[in-house]
Design a binder for these strands. Sequence first.
DNA 1: TAATCCGATGAAAGCGCTCTCATGAAGACT
DNA 2: AGTCTTCATGAGAGCGCTTTCATCGGATTA
Lengths: 343, 343
Amino acid sequence: MLSGVTSRRDSARLSDVARASGVSLSTASRALAAPELVLPKTRGRILDAAARLGYVPHGAARALASRRSRTIGAVVPTLDNPIFAASTQVLQHRIAQEGYTLLLGSHEYDLKAEVKVVSALIERGVDGIVLVGLDHSPELHRLLAKAEIPCELTWATDASEMHYSLGFSNRRAAARIAQHLLELGHREFAMISGRTASNDRARERVAGVREALAAHGLVLPPRRMLEVPFSIPAAREALGHLLDAGERFTALVGGNDLLALGALLEAAARGIAVPGRLSVTGFDDIELAAEISPGLTTLHIPVAEIGRLAAERMLARIGGVDVPKSHEVPVDLVVRASTAPPG
Amino acid sequence: MLSGVTSRRDSARLSDVARASGVSLSTASRALAAPELVLPKTRGRILDAAARLGYVPHGAARALASRRSRTIGAVVPTLDNPIFAASTQVLQHRIAQEGYTLLLGSHEYDLKAEVKVVSALIERGVDGIVLVGLDHSPELHRLLAKAEIPCELTWATDASEMHYSLGFSNRRAAARIAQHLLELGHREFAMISGRTASNDRARERVAGVREALAAHGLVLPPRRMLEVPFSIPAAREALGHLLDAGERFTALVGGNDLLALGALLEAAARGIAVPGRLSVTGFDDIELAAEISPGLTTLHIPVAEIGRLAAERMLARIGGVDVPKSHEVPVDLVVRASTAPPG
DNA sequence: TAATCCGATGAAAGCGCTCTCATGAAGACT
DNA sequence: AGTCTTCATGAGAGCGCTTTCATCGGATTA
């Protein structure tokens, strides 16, 4: 491209602004990036000219020269899960306030796909990356290390403190749910979990339930632990399956609210009284959990807080300020009408 | 920055790849961007070297030189609404297959905020922009025109064909729902709508219902048309309000499924039989609509299809291929158990 | 055999900005 | 008055890539 004439001649460059205001390119650049270094009078002239010409900075040029893109990457399993949609929403909102833009990817619970997405984000020069969970491909970590950009793992805390993480202990949280059921007097449990492969959150929740039961000398037999996709119909089918198989249990632990909701609906459809004959628990506390009847006993996760904190921690680290390696957000048991002592 | 030594010395540049494979920078560049222009043998050497050095192209440099960023921007009102989350998910997935990355913004139904977000995206050099709905600030259109990048409006069709749009007629769709209720024999209607300010979809749905009623000589009295935020509790409250005010109606039209769901739950809580004493309709056909009891009569929108088509149309236009100015996706009435003739 | 063409490669000029360093004028101090 | 600071501004070298244009063998044709 030898002739500059062929390029977007209509959109003003910084050099145009500089010329129009009678200053050098450097001064014009400073007026925008570090206004305090420029005499107020000069600065005014430059800003006027910029406004008049409708100057819009060229992000790529800026990123190339300054080595920072003012973009942050986020990769979630899927936006279809309202908790990821909600926390991403807050993350985006918060970083936008600081002039950052969100680059978004998803991987549908496929770790190989995640590597590709992250690699695309790094190629785009993101200043930092927010991921979900602790389970990631080693290659992912290699890429990240090489790019030398900060990374936050969310929705879980990394006990080993090898990585920066933000969330809560899924294991302890799930144990708490189970504990609640145990205290009500339940002894026969079943669980409908999401897929545990490549999903540490799901795995840890199952482990938490098992631990709590074990403390009472109880077990969760494999045939009463079903793994299904995260969807209402899948959960309905799973409960149907357990029931049809003649399994006798008084407490059903859902891997998350969606799954618990499916169980609630299936129980209603089959005329099984909740909590009369069956107690059901969820995990997440989505909006619907409080509205449905019976109200779902679940664990409240501060979803927005996770998004906000991910933003804060990321922004701090990009700015060179260190933060604690792991940050735990409070989660709370919310007892509603779906649990009661076994009938 | 006079010394190149201070910059990420560890990450390989294209010039390193060129040197390592004994070719010029140009040839190395071509080997990656237009492989057919390079002798297979040479190309192989170059690709080998690139792999060996772990070469990752520098997006900003590429964007600066080529004037295309291989990123696409999308701005939604909020990710909290599952229909936007789902269509965005598909959009992201589809463009990623073509090597594009999604830049995401949201504006929370604030047109001024939208301008800011879009401006940030343009600054980042997106190759195209996907927006939701027809209502946008004039300034938005000015920015877009100046940037000369393609823009797709989704979730509605622009009858005037001034802009490229992809979706369906919210008015006709809503009229169809009302028509269904009219055919069942309903004559007394109420509606719970989302906020109609800056939201053409909500406005058109109300208009569609009014049109259908008018064709039968009926009206929707203002006191029976409530505008609320898009949330279940808000809808419950609204229905409560209508009932408490002593309004007598046999059909309740929800502006979307979430609102209808709220109405369903409130009716259940108050012991009002649906569809015995009250028929309720939704709009969108979210997963829950089919699962809840009674099943929600609603309008099915091909959400994933909208995301996919937005991707296809955008990719085509970026590639210089023109597409029809407006594309209508089929929507279908889904009759479930929440509607019946008035008791 | 000479003229012609073609496909593969290289040289080098940007793309639009940032940032270091140099400069020079004005004020501070002795 | 002379020297030293300080501060606002300017000059110019990149940032890492793409792309045009020139070049140069070798195959094709007359």
